[in-house]
């Protein structure tokens, strides 16, 4: 191995150490934030629930959240030893439904948020960087979508095409929720574009692609990530709303679905053990993602402050 190769190796090692150090620093700030800690512990709890959701059906087929029916139960019953949270109107276990609901919530929330943020970031960066006609067209499109009431439109589509699968719902949410992100990312891109380091990159011979991916993107990604945590919240709420109104995926057990079953079978005021758990879970998971987002805000902020203060 030549000396050059050795230095190169050490450069790579140094770069890794640098990122570790950066991560550690961010983690330190995050840990100092109470909201973030609460949010993160709640999310860990929901994550555990989602993970545990695979276990009950293995114990006994009657614990399958969708199809498992306790043959001894014919109506909704309260908590007992065999059904810790009770059963629903046809004897399905509420706890295993609740666990399965956590899995669905994560799946819907994260994937819809991820898709909308990716789309929003791509559109926002393109519009901001290219400017002119492209900017106008993309932003007018964003405006048009932004003013559409997501829930109402998805409801209408669901009514038109019959029941929608959970993935269709995810896609819909993503398609309707990107404009907000793209506005923020566009604004950020516009201000970055004016910064001298972009001029410096141009003088260094960087192509547009390189400027977008190497210079602008790393500077907007933290913001995009921040927006993702907030978007998760709204995606979960929209899915729950759809399901509660009866337009959810009938093949999936989500918390919104559970609420719909409570309501449809008239147990709203008679079975708190059935009504409360999914309701509390929806509120808590949206709250925890929100708190996480607030903490991320803190984490991203000091670095920005750091930069300006040095000047």
């Amino acid at each position: 191995m030549s000396v050059q190769q050795a230095t190169l190796q050490s450069l790579k090692a140094g770069r890794r150490a640098l990122w570790r150090q950066r991560l550690a620093e961010n983690w330190r700030v995050f840990r100092g934030n109470l909201l973030g800690k609460i949010g993160l512990s709640l999310l860990v709890m929901f994550g555990l629930m989602a993970g545990l959701s695979y276990i009950p059906p293995l114990i006994d087929p009657m614990y399958h959240p969708m199809t498992g029916v306790d043959p001894l139960v014919v109506k909704s019953t309260g908590p007992s030893l065999t059904h810790w949270l009770g059963t629903d109107f046809m004897g399905r276990d509420i706890l295993s439904q609740l666990l399965a609901g956590a899995r669905v919530a994560f799946m819907v929330g994260v994937s819809a948020a991820f898709m909308s943020v990716v789309l929003g970031t791509a559109v926002g960066m393109t519009a901001g960087y290219l400017g002119k006609t492209t900017d106008t067209l993309l932003m007018r499109l964003a405006d048009m979508i932004m003013v559409l009431p997501t829930l109402l439109v998805v409801l209408m589509l669901a009514a038109l095409f019959g029941q929608l699968s959970i993935w269709m719902i995810v896609l819909m949410i993503a398609l309707f929720r990107w404009p907000g992100v793209s506005r923020v990312i566009r604004a950020q891109t516009l201000s970055l574009k004016q910064r001298p380091f972009i001029d410096a990159a141009r003088v260094a011979g960087a192509s547009h692609t390189r400027i977008i991916f190497r210079h602008i993107m790393p500077n907007v990604l933290p913001l995009a990530f921040l927006y993702m945590t907030f978007r998760v919240t709204s995606a979960i709420v929209i899915e729950a709303g759809l399901a509660f109104l009866g337009f959810g995926d009938p093949g999936t057990v989500s918390w919104g679905m559970m609420l719909q079953w409570v309501w449809k079978t008239g147990h709203m005021f008679t079975a708190p053990y059935w009504l409360l758990p999914p309701g509390i879970c929806i509120s808590l998971i949206t709250l925890s993602f929100y708190m996480l987002g607030r903490a991320m805000d803190e984490v991203l902020d000091p670095r920005l402050r750091d930069e300006t203060q040095a000047g």
């Binding site: 380091f197 210079h215 930069e307």
Partner: peptide
Amino acid sequence: MVFQDPYQSLNPQM
């Protein structure tokens, strides 16, 4: 070119 403001002419993420 060398730019005027070294606080602004280097990409903070690089």
